[in-house]
């Protein structure tokens, strides 16, 4: 698998993301935000975490207008797979490639810790190696992860199995972490080729470092 990893001024998870996919046996290529085209023959675009453009105005609001995002939009609209992690999720919602928006955490804190997540839907190209209802332990690190969507949008997400993950306890019961609507931690678009989540699977590859649950998540794209 060949993975394109985007890089904006202020991105800081691009090397972790490359490391993760290369460790799983894939090739990766960094793509600069000014590039007009994505590399050829790619299987996945990852918009990694960080603080693109210093989170100025709103997280992800400036990055979405960068040159490379035009190429990402047309790639996604043609069915290409795109994964946004943390700031990447914020960029994809700002770009309108994913529904809803990410607000400041309810407690106004930057939250950085390992967090249990419950797999809500796995009938997609991302979480197909995880079981429905399974609890994963993945690090989170964000200030703007409070997912908001209106009632009508939430209903659509639920009906179409677009909710991927919810923050949970070790039994899989939803818990309030940052104020997200129904504890949502990750979603996908209607056509299930664009994925976004606040937690960082690329930081959960070794059990000695706390968890290797990220491996199965990222391996989902191998199908």
């Amino acid at each position: 698998m060949k993975v394109a990893v985007l890089r904006f001024p202020g991105t800081n998870c691009e090397f972790d993301t490359q490391y993760a996919f290369e460790k799983l046996g894939h090739t990766t290529e960094l793509v600069w935000h000014e590039d007009e085209k994505l590399p050829v023959d790619i299987d996945l675009v990852v918009v990694p975490g960080g603080f693109s453009y210093g989170d100025y105005l709103r997280s992800g609001s400036i990055a979405r207008f960068s040159t490379v995002m035009k190429a990402v939009s047309s790639y996604a609209n043609n069915g290409g797979k795109v994964l946004g992690i943390c700031n990447g999720f914020q960029i994809l919602t700002e770009a309108g490639l994913l529904p809803g928006a990410l607000k400041r955490n309810n407690n106004l804190h930057f939250i950085s810790k390992h967090q249990n997540l419950c797999v809500i839907n796995n009938d997609n190209d991302f979480l197909n190696k995880c079981k429905k209802g399974e609890v994963l332990n993945i690090p989170i690190a964000h200030a703007d992860g409070n997912y908001y969507i209106d009632d009508e949008g939430l209903k659509k997400l639920e009906e179409n199995n677009q909710i991927l993950l919810r923050y949970s306890d070790s039994e899989g019961n939803p818990v309030v972490v940052n104020g997200s609507v129904t504890s949502i931690a990750g979603i996908c678009n209607e056509t299930k080729n664009v994925f976004g989540l606040m937690p960082h699977p690329e930081r959960a590859l070794e059990s000695i470092l706390g968890s290797d649950d990220g491996v199965r998540m990222l391996q989902g794209f191998e199908n």
């Binding site: 105005l57 609001s61 207008f65 919602t93 700002e94 928006a101 607000k103 908001y148």
Partner: peptide, 8 residues
């Protein structure tokens, strides 16, 4: 376009 996110 930019200054407000009309979703929220």
């Amino acid at each position: 376009t930019l200054l407000a996110n009309t979703v929220i």
